[in-house]
């Protein structure tokens, strides 16, 4: 299982703007580097990151080889109702990692 660190408030006031920060361990390979045998090493990056609040997608991004290894993503959302924040990373070679955070809105 991938190592993931998520920083999101457990509770929020209705209508408040909250910041969600997510960091994931992923050993990247840009796809531009030659290996010891001179052949280009196959690319291995995280391609997509999506965040859904219950079933509604609230944030998504496409990643490229110019983004660092172990990417750190920070975004904002308006807390409208209690729910579960579902973070999902997908990438090359079938890489999938998920994390869930429950946020209670008062």
């Amino acid at each position: 299982m991938a190592n993931i660190l998520v920083n999101a408030p457990k509770t929020a006031k209705r209508g408040a703007v909250i910041e969600i920060k997510a960091l994931i361990m992923h050993q990247m390979e840009t796809g531009f580097r030659p290996g010891p045998n001179g052949q280009i090493l196959p690319r291995n990056i995280i391609e997509h990151f999506t965040a859904t609040w219950d079933d509604a997608e609230i944030f998504s991004m496409e990643m490229s080889p110019a983004i660092s290894a172990n990417p750190f993503v920070s975004f904002f959302a308006v807390a409208s109702e209690s729910g579960t924040l579902h973070l999902r990373w997908t990438g090359d070679h079938g890489f999938v990692a998920e994390e869930k955070v429950a946020i209670a809105v008062e």
Binding site: N3, I4, V6, L23, M25, F72
Partner: peptide, 12 residues
């Protein structure tokens, strides 16, 4: 601690 990538390794 949630922005320091070293903490991913601490978690591991």
């Amino acid at each position: 601690d949630t922005a320091n990538p070293g903490m991913l390794f601490v978690q591991q």
